[in-house]
Design a protein around this nucleic acid. Structure first.
Lengths: 350, 350
DNA sequence: AAAGGCACCGCAATCGATTGCGAGACAGCA
DNA sequence: TGCTGTCTCGCAATCGATTGCGGTGCCTTT
C-alpha cells in the first residue's frame, strides 16, 4: 500500500523569478513593488510580472519583515473571547484592518495580569505594529510602561486614568441616563445599581452617571442601593444582588453594570422566588446577543459593537501612520432597547 | 507645550548580547538555545545568559523564522466567531498550542467561499505550520487542494467526504440518540427534525442518526417531518419550522440541528402563539452559553467544547511533528442537558 | 615525543527580500 | 568631440539569528 508521497516543493523565491525573467533579483524586486516600479523599464517590468505570475510567486513576508521592520500585523488584547460582547467588536476591527492590508493577532488574557503580560510580550516579540486593548484598568502599570516605550495603542471600552491614549468607547453616561430615565418614567423611585468593578473606567463612569441621573430625576438617592461587583460576570452580578437584598435595602428596579451582571440577577430571582419584572425590573448594558430570548427578554442599553471595533481599527491605523498625532478619542451614542424585564413597579406588591 | 518625545530604541540584538558577553554571536546563539547549550562552556554560557538578561534581550522571531523555516504559528479557520459555539473551542485549542510554544492566528470566513480562500491564502503566506479548520463542507475543493499540497490540517466539528484527514468531532450519532430517547421517554411519537445544511457532514450525520433513532424507538417515521435548513442559524431554523407547520404536518416535538436552529423555533412559537413545551418540545445541540436563561430554558445535547479544541490542538501538533503518521480522528461523547423546553406531549391539547 | 581525540568557540554562509550606491548606455547640448 | 544628465539595472550590504565547518588549545594515549 503506497501512501501518496507528498512533495513539499520549496516555494518560488525572488531569485527564481529573476532568473526566469533574465534579470537581477534587485530588478525583480523593484518591478514587483508598485512603489518602485517606475524605476525599471516598462518592458522588463512586464517580463518580471509575467515570470512571477507563471510560477506563482508569493513574496515571503518573513524575509520582507526582517528587512523592512514592518509586519503588517497588530495585536488584539481581549479579556475573554467567550464574552459575547467582544466577537462583534473584533469583527469591526478586522474589517478595517484587513481593508488596509493589516491583520490582527487575537489573544485572551482571562482577566489575569500575569497572562496579560505574557501575551503582550508575545505580541511584541512578534513585532506587531500596534495594539488594540480591551482589558484596560484605571491603574494599569503595564499599559503605562508600553506607552512610555512608544508602543502604539488604542483602547476600546475602557480607559486608563491619567493616560492620554486614543480610545473608543460607548457614551456610558448617556446610556445610563437612558436606562434611569426609562425606569423613572415607569414610576420607579428606588432604583439600585449593581456597578461593575471600580477598577475599570467603565465601572466608575457608569456608577457616577447613575448617581447623577438619580439626582436629576429627583429619585431616592440612597448610597446603600449601589453595590460593586468584583468582575463583569454573571456570578458576581448574582452575588451583588444577594448582598443587596440581604442588607434589607428595598428597591423596585436594578440598573446592572452590564448584561452579564443583569443575567446574574435572574439567577437570584429564581432562587428567591421573585418575579421579573413584577417584583423587580432590570436593565442591562451592552446588548449582547440572544437577550431577546431570555426569560424575561432583557431591557438593555444597546451600543454599536461593530462601529466600536471599526473606529478602534481606524484610530490605530492613524496612530501607526502618524505617531505624533494628538490622541483622538471617539464616543459612540448608545440607545435603549426596551423589552420585558422592565415594567411599572408594584404590580404584585400589596 | 512639549510633547513627551518618545525614543523608540532599537531592540537589543544577538550581537549586542555577544558583545557584552565578549563572545561571538554564534556562541551567544548556542548558549541561549537550550538545545545547543551543551556545545559551549558552562561558564561562558552563564556569562551570555547574564548579559542577555541584563539588557532584556528577546530573540527576533522574524529573523529566526527566516533561517529555520519554522514560525511556531498555526491558522484557525472559523466560519463565524460570533457563533458562541466557537470561542470555547478556540480556548481549548490555544491552551495546548501555547503550552507547546505555538500561537494561533484566528480568521473568520463568514461562511463565504471567496473570503475563505483569501484568508487561507493569507495564512499560508504567513507561513503557518498547520491549519485547524472548522468550516469544512462535504465537498470542499479548497481543502482537497491544500491536502494535495501537503498542508497539515485538522478538522473540527465537520469533515470532508472522501478526504482522510485527522478530525475531532462530537459523537453526533450518540447525541441525537440521547435527544430522541429523551423525547420518546416523555411519550412523544411524532418528532420532527430541523436538519442542518446537508452540505456539511454534521448536518447529514445528525439527520441520519435521527432517522435511525426514530426507527429504533418505533416512532412515526415520516419523511415530511424532516426539513433542512440552509444555514446553521436562527433565521433558517425559524424558516424551516414555518415551512414544516405550513405543510400541515403534525408533531409534538422538534430535534433541532443545533441550538441556533432551536432558538429560531422560539421565534415561530411567539409568532403563532404556541407554547413551548406545552404545545411543542424542542431539543437543541451544542449547549451554547446562556441557554439556561432562555424562555424556556433549552434542553440540549452538550458537547465538550473545550476538549474538542484541545484535542484538535494536540492532533495538529502530532501532524506537524510526524506528517507521515496515519490520520487519527477523535470522537467525543456528548451528554443530554434536560431543561424546560421538553415535556410530555399533549398537556394543553384537547 | 608524536599522534590522536575532545571541548570549545569563531568564521562565514545562509534564509529571502530590500535598497543605497554606482556603473553603463544613450541622448542632448555646447 | 566631449561633457552633462537621465534612464536602467546590477552589485553588495543589510535585516537578525542559525549552523556547518574548521581551527586552536589541551589532554590522553602509545
Amino acid at each position: 500500500m503506497t501512501v501518496p508521497k507528498v512533495v513539499r516543493m520549496a516555494a518560488p523565491t525572488l531569485r527564481d523569478v529573476a532568473q526566469l525573467a533574465g534579470v537581477h533579483p534587485a530588478t525583480a524586486s523593484r518591478a514587483l513593488n508598485p512603489q518602485t516600479r517606475p524605476l525599471v523599464n516598462a518592458d522588463t517590468a512586464r517580463k518580471v510580472l509575467r515570470a512571477a505570475e507563471s510560477i506563482g510567486y508569493q513574496p515571503n513576508p518573513i524575509a520582507r519583515s526582517l528587512k523592512t521592520a514592518r509586519t503588517g500585523t497588530v495585536g488584539l488584547v481581549i479579556p475573554d473571547l467567550t464574552n459575547p460582547l467582544f466577537p462583534p467588536i473584533v469583527r469591526g476591527i478586522e474589517e478595517v484592518l484587513t481593508r488596509a492590508g493589516y491583520s490582527a493577532w487575537i489573544v485572551n488574557t482571562d482577566n489575569d495580569l500575569a497572562r496579560e503580560e505574557n501575551q503582550v510580550e508575545s505580541l511584541r516579540s512578534r513585532q506587531v505594529e500596534g495594539l488594540i486593548i480591551a482589558t484596560a484598568r484605571r491603574e494599569h502599570p503595564l499599559l503605562e510602561r508600553l506607552h512610555r516605550q512608544g508602543v502604539r495603542m488604542v483602547l476600546v471600552n475602557r480607559r486608563v486614568d491619567g493616560l492620554d491614549l486614543p480610545s473608543v468607547t460607548a457614551d456610558d453616561d448617556a446610556g445610563i441616563g437612558l436606562a434611569v430615565a426609562h425606569l423613572a418614567g415607569l414610576g420607579h423611585r428606588r432604583i439600585a445599581h449593581l456597578a461593575g468593578p471600580q477598577t475599570t473606567s467603565t465601572g466608575v463612569v457608569r456608577a457616577r452617571a447613575f448617581r447623577h441621573a438619580i439626582r436629576d430625576h429627583g429619585l431616592d438617592d440612597d448610597a446603600s442601593l449601589i453595590v460593586e461587583c468584583a468582575y463583569w460576570s454573571e456570578a458576581e452580578g448574582a452575588a451583588a444582588l444577594r448582598t443587596l437584598l440581604d442588607s434589607g435595602a428595598t428597591c423596585t428596579a436594578v440598573v446592572a453594570g452590564n448584561d452579564l451582571i443583569a443575567l446574574g440577577c435572574y439567577d437570584v430571582f429564581a432562587e428567591r422566588g421573585l418575579s421579573c419584572p413584577d417584583d423587580m425590573s432590570v436593565v442591562g448594558f451592552n446588548e449582547m446577543p440572544f437577550l431577546d430570548k431570555m426569560n424575561p427578554p432583557l431591557t438593555t442599553v444597546s451600543i454599536p459593537h461593530y462601529e466600536i471595533g471599526s473606529e478602534a481599527g481606524r484610530l490605530l491605523l492613524d496612530t501607526i501612520e502618524d505617531p505624533e498625532r494628538h490622541p483622538r478619542s471617539v464616543l459612540l451614542s448608545p440607545s435603549l432597547v426596551v423589552r420585558a424585564s422592565t415594567a411599572a413597579p408594584g404590580w404584585s406588591s400589596p
